[in-house]
Design a protein around this nucleic acid. Structure first.
Length: 480
DNA sequence: TGAAATGTTGGGGCG
DNA sequence: ACGCCCCAACATTTC
């Protein structure tokens, strides 16, 4: 008899409960990944996601090959492909690790009952979360809507299970079922090849994930509390895309981080580790919200925002997307995103505040752009975070919290290192002007070789005025 | 995981 | 020496 192991957002061999359960059966395991773009509705994977997926699948296949197995690739509605695979292999069990997107939950339920209706085994596991969304609730048995009590409950739910190691061998069928060719899926960009910057920035796959984690825990984490706000240095873990694809899981991260903290400081949550794990808790909170409020990606959680007077400004949106707003810290972030598929978290907050409050454009426009361009695009995190900035989400930022892009730049990129990396055309400006090129005198501009309005744009909005406009719009909404 | 406006305090210049 | 003003520095409040 045979077991089908259905890989999804759990592209790893260590700490993979479905894989462990498959091996426990001591039967051949057919490992499969199904490209199912029929079901995700508006939330089909974007270009950056597909780029990462291609690399991650190749890495997973290589890891399986080392262990005497292969990854079978199939494309089509998952329920059809699973049914075909059962026919082709005579499998009597299908195992997988759970996903939590509304469309995936529904689809997986259908598939599970279809398999059971055939008298076969279908079983799912938790590989992605410290606490699955239905395991935590408030005293009144409601889903959490505020982060701090959520985190308290999460931490109180006990130490995460100890992660298991990657198996040395995964028994295979003598003859594998037919597999697609990965390159034929066309996940990688061709003309133009926009992924050059991605390749230098990232190593998709489980090995790359552990390399990142080790590097982070070797030192960065102990300065995390302040270092995480400095986009000009590597002050964060950069694990987000690896986490999104399940190349590493939060249990592994939690145990590795607390162990390292214990060794270094004598306490499991010492130095920056507590702050870092808090970010892991935010991720859990986002999944909790998405599961309990499945319209989170489309609808404001606070209904009074439904008729918010967002502007419609194609030019403004395009300026934001291309990193041509005239505010260096905003533009640097948007270009980092475009070039590498990732943006520093502090800068994500700045650019999001700028789109929403300065340009008064709908948070959905930002959500969609991030969805297409981020290698860590994650339905739960993306939706929850955009709603948080817009003020319409759970435990959201108060409406009057408007980031000043100049002050944020001067505070968190004081030497202009980040800005100069991504906006070379203004790199020669002195530090005191690097976040305010419009304040430079003609002489200073000439010395830096900049023609403002040609080499680099004038600010698309005046921040002070835009701030007042936003406060006005938010107040109007409240009084209706 | 803000920033601006407004209020308060205290040192120093100066008549 | 004293009172007045200025304003930086810090605190509080308001959005």
């Amino acid at each position: 008899m045979t077991t089908i192991l259905w890989f999804r957002r759990d592209l790893r061999l260590a700490d993979n409960p479905a894989l462990d359960a498959a091996l426990a059966k001591a039967q051949p395991v057919v490992c499969v990944y199904i490209l199912d773009d029929a079901d995700a509705g508006a939330w089909r994977p974007g270009g950056a996601t597909n780029w990462w997926l291609a690399g991650s699948l190749a890495a997973l296949d290589a890891a399986l090959t080392k262990r005497g197995n292969r990854l079978v690739l199939r494309r089509g509605p998952a329920e059809d492909e699973i049914a075909k695979l059962i026919d082709e292999t005579g499998a009597e069990a299908v195992l997988w690790n759970r996903r939590y997107e509304p469309w995936a939950v529904k689809r997986d339920e259908r598939i599970k009952s279809a398999i059971k209706a055939r008298g076969l085994t279908a079983e799912s596991f938790n590989a992605s979360l410290l606490a699955e969304p239905w395991t935590l609730a408030t005293q009144k048995d409601n889903p959490y809507r505020v982060f701090t009590p959520f985190r308290r409950a999460l931490y109180a739910s006990g130490e995460p299970q100890r992660p298991t190691r990657a198996p040395k061998k995964i028994p295979a069928l003598k003859t594998l079922p037919p597999s697609d060719d990965l390159t034929a899926w066309g996940l990688l960009p061709t003309a133009p090849d926009w992924a050059g910057g991605f390749r230098t920035a990232w190593q998709p796959g489980e090995a790359g994930a552990h390399r990142r984690l080790d590097y982070f825990l070797d030192g960065t984490v102990f300065d995390y509390r302040t270092g995480r706000d400095r986009p000009g240095i590597v002050g964060t873990s950069r694990l987000s895309p690896h986490l999104h694809f399940g190349e590493i899981g939060p249990r592994q991260i939690w145990h590795a981080a607390t162990a390292r903290s214990m060794a270094q400081t004598g306490s499991p949550m010492g130095q920056g580790v507590d702050t870092f794990l808090s970010e892991i808790a935010w991720r859990e909170f986002s999944y909790h919200l998405l599961f309990h409020f499945p319209t989170l990606p489309e609808q404001p959680l606070r209904s009074e925002f439904t008729d918010f007077p967002w502007r419609n400004d194609a030019k403004g949106l395009a300026a934001w997307q291309r990193g041509m707003t005239g505010y260096p810290i905003v533009d640097a972030g948007m270009r980092e995103l475009w070039t590498t598929g990732w943006m520093h978290n502090r800068v994500r907050m700045i650019v999001a505040s700028f789109l929403i409050k300065d340009l008064l454009l709908p948070w959905r426009a930002g959500e969609e752009w991030f969805w297409d361009t981020l290698v860590d695009a994650d339905l739960a995190n993306n939706a929850a975070s955009w709603q948080w900035v817009a003020g319409c989400g759970a435990d959201a930022a108060p409406y009057f919290r408007v980031f000043n892009p100049t002050l944020q730049g001067e505070k968190f990129d004081p030497d202009g290192r980040y800005v100069r990396t991504w906006i070379p055309e203004i790199a020669k400006l002195p530090d005191k002007l690097i976040h305010t090129p419009w304040k430079a005198t003609p002489l200073e501009l000439a010395e830096a070789g900049i023609r403002l309005g040609r080499d680099y744009p004038h600010p698309v909005v005046d921040h002070a005025g835009a701030r007042l406009r936003a406060l006005d719009a938010y107040r109007t909404m409240g009084s209706d």
